[in-house]
Nucleic acid binder design. Structure first.
Lengths: 111, 111
DNA sequence: ATATAATACCTCGTATTGCATAGTACATCC
DNA sequence: GGATGTACTATGCAATACGAGGTATTATAT
């Protein structure tokens, strides 16, 4: 995640982990604000578009947490082939939270 | 911290706490890159200039951690009155880390 | 004079959460 | 049979913000 340099020392590696704890919920809400996605897809998306590598044991509990907080809604979508996908959508409350989070982040980074 | 809105629910409150885990070391290094400061002063500084409220039980262990990582150096400075102040200075390694952190953050927020 | 606030340093325990690891289950494709 | 896609769970560790508490000095208000 967060390409800092090829060789990362322990401190920077740990720092990135800690930073993720705050950024992941934001990234997920932001990604789902653009369009609905399923868990497995989100993992790929964060990797490709946010430079952020997340394991399944991080993503699935996170999605469940956000859904329990009512920031996300999910719907099982049957596929013509393969296992059904659990698509997540952002809720109105989720959008409000995302806006609040965006503000908080801008407050701290733009200036 | 991070003025989001007057009334914060549990989720946002908790999210801010998690976000701090990544941002605080960055803020501290950034603040000390500008000039030396002592712990108590840093708490005020983060509040005034970073919109970030931190308690003493967060700041003091953080400074100790950064100092043990050799990103900071400290010097006790006697005062004409009152308790001596423990002034912290950023080290060369600290400056390098700050640059790396800055890069990582820009990677994720500018795009 | 005395209380209290502010300044200045600190420690300990708890809760949160990413993540490593290790599973389960099923489908598809080569 | 093995790789990839898709969903999930459980356990335990590591890191850290924070509440609560402590100590000491000085300034201010009652």
């Amino acid at each position: 995640m967060l390409y800092i340099c090829r060789v990362k020392n322990e401190f920077l590696k740990n720092w990135e982990t800690q930073l993720k704890k705050g950024l992941l919920p934001y990234f997920v809400l932001k990604a789902l604000d653009a369009r609905e996605r399923y868990g497995y897809e989100l993992i790929q998306h964060l990797k490709d578009d946010f430079n952020t590598e997340v394991t399944e044991s991080t993503m699935y509990p996170l999605l469940t947490r956000l859904q329990k907080e009512e920031l996300l809604i999910y719907k099982w979508i049957e596929q013509p082939t393969g296992i059904p996908r659990k698509y997540y959508y952002i809720s109105e409350e989720g959008r409000a939270h995302l806006a609040a989070m965006k503000n908080a982040i801008n407050e701290n980074f733009i200036k």
